[in-house]
């Protein structure tokens, strides 16, 4: 199976927001970082992939199967963490184990217990006594404990301290060691994505504006910082967006090498995903 997830021409209309022709593919064995500002359409896209919303148009295939007609088979093989907390807070981790045992045919009780130990989560305490980070960890443990092939995670590291985040990222990296497993990961923690993502898909105002490998973005894209006089000398076709700062200009370029050959004086800085997001959203052309 070449692609574990294929989203084709996904459209969904709300009164104040529209998802327009969202298309991207996640190759098997890869991690895709799904980025965009708040309200850009990340959660709506994830909800459509998971059939949490149903009245959308377009085609979504997971593991080569249509997500609407093969719901049960697909969901046996995916692990999910949603943006909002979702476990009833009167339940305990041991209740979650009992519940999931009857829901997933491949539920691995031992693996779940191991994750609980690793995350220092108590078995017999009500979830309402957990911190936000502990709740997220419980959700992650639950998403992983039935040996899914695909993890769909909406802000899984939000609320986690740096140590816990590193721990979770390591778990995701171990998960991906099995070449059949893949992750779609929506996150605002772009530094984490720079470390683990193979692909980045960037959504803005309901439209995909970039979907490429992380290496391609970090190696070829760059920020040029220059004065107003220098900016005037640069041809518009040589940059994607620009932003006027107080004392200089910031330009987003997509081909560092060819830019260097054309222009010699400007400062070319390495790009981060944060820079990319800001310039793509706030920049103009």
């Amino acid at each position: 199976m070449k692609n574990i997830l294929e989203v084709k021409n996904l459209n969904k209309k709300y009164a104040d927001f529209t998802l327009k022709n969202v298309s991207f593919t996640l190759p098997t064995g890869m991690i895709m970082g799904f980025i965009g500002e708040n309200g850009a359409g990340k959660t709506t896209t994830i909800k459509a992939i998971l059939n949490i919303i149903t009245d959308y148009t377009g085609e979504i295939n997971i593991m080569g199967l249509n997500n609407k007609t093969n719901d049960q088979k697909i969901k046996e093989n995916i692990g999910v963490v949603l943006d909002d907390m979702f476990f009833p807070e009167v339940l305990k981790a041991q209740d979650i184990n009992q519940i999931m045992k009857s829901i997933y045919t491949s539920w691995d009780e031992e693996l779940f217990q191991n994750y609980l130990k690793q995350f220092n989560l108590p078995l017999k305490k009500a979830i309402k006594t957990f911190s936000k980070g502990m709740r997220k960890k419980l959700e992650i443990a639950t998403a992983l404990a039935h040996h899914p092939q695909l993890l769909i995670l909406d802000e899984p590291t939000s609320g986690l301290d740096p140590v816990a985040r590193a721990e979770v990222i390591e778990i995701f990296q171990n998960f991906i060691q099995n070449e059949k497993c893949s992750i779609l990961l929506s996150s605002h923690q772009t530094t984490d994505l720079e470390h683990i993502a193979d692909y980045i898909t960037f959504i803005n105002k309901g439209q995909i504006i970039l979907s490429a490998t992380c290496d391609e973005i970090l190696n070829h894209y760059a920020i040029v910082r220059c004065t107003a006089a220098e900016f005037k000398k640069i041809k518009p076709e040589d940059y994607l967006k620009y932003r006027q700062e107080k004392y200089n200009y910031e330009l987003l370029i997509t081909n560092k090498k060819s830019f260097k050959q054309k222009y010699t004086t400007e400062v070319i800085d390495k790009i981060t995903l944060d820079d990319l997001m800001v310039l793509m959203i706030k920049g103009v052309k």
């Binding site: 949603l82 009833p88 997933y104 769909i152």
Partner: peptide, 14 residues
Amino acid sequence: FNKWDAYAATLPNG
């Protein structure tokens, strides 16, 4: 209150 139904929709035959 805990938005369980959205999560339930992601479970097999949820």
